[in-house]
Design a protein around this nucleic acid. Structure first.
Lengths: 122, 122
DNA sequence: GTAAAATCTGACATCAGTGTCAGATTCAAG
DNA sequence: CTTGAATCTGACACTGATGTCAGATTTTAC
């Protein structure tokens, strides 16, 4: 599929898809004229990239992680080096911390919301 | 307490503390000479600000939310307007989505980590 | 073959929180 | 007082993902 369709199906702008490729997170075949041509798998790949970005991982780290992931049908293409392994563990710890902050923040918002709703409906 | 101690006790840079004040998230008394003087409560306040920032809320929105929060010992100083209430609900939904992404990303990292650890220790 | 739609590259802008630096002023201790 | 540490304001830089625009090229539909 071409970039327009991939963008439509993932909700990601074409600009971002080109950026993902430039950062090494996404690969594409090219038509003879130079237009990008993506396999069906690209949809899931892009969604995963978005999730990892949302979790605060940087592009270049994602690019290094992706080849070490198990595909749904098989084993990883590369194996994680010890150095990468340490980084991944650090990222996981950071995510755990972030989830705790999110839980706190959500509770705060929830409290404000329910307090205000209570006032509106006495 | 003064800004140096507050920064030390919260792990937040003085630069950021001044920025928080500039954005209306944090208030301070001033010494006759113009130096900031914080009450003990400021410590918890700053920690909360950091959590809300980590959750992706923008400074100016945090500044509007904080007065509507219940203090541990009493009722809120202001009440949330309906418009703010809508924003809060949207933020809460966004946080829910983000938590889902974090869970996915964490699982991905965990899988890569345990796969690699398994290879290292066969 | 032609026109319209899609895509290409490359460049510059944006945002928001934080780092950093300079020069001036204030505070605390001797 | 004096001196050194702390703080003040204001300015500028950075980051990294994304938006946007321009001009050229390719693809698709007729």
């Amino acid at each position: 599929m071409r970039i327009g369709e991939l963008g439509r199906r993932t909700g990601v702008s074409e600009r971002s898809l080109r950026y993902y490729e430039q950062q090494g997170m996404l690969v594409s075949d090219r038509t003879p004229g130079g237009h990008r041509d993506y396999p069906e798998r690209a949809v899931d790949r892009v969604i995963l990239i978005q999730e990892l970005l949302a979790a605060g991982l940087h592009s270049k780290k994602i690019a290094r992680i992706l080849p070490c992931m198990r595909d749904p049908d098989g084993a990883p293409n590369e194996r994680a080096t010890p150095a990468l392994l340490r980084e991944l563990t650090a990222e996981r710890d950071r995510i755990d911390q972030l989830m705790a902050d999110l839980a706190t923040s959500r509770a705060v918002l929830d409290d404000v919301i329910s307090t205000a709703a209570q006032e509106l409906r006495p």
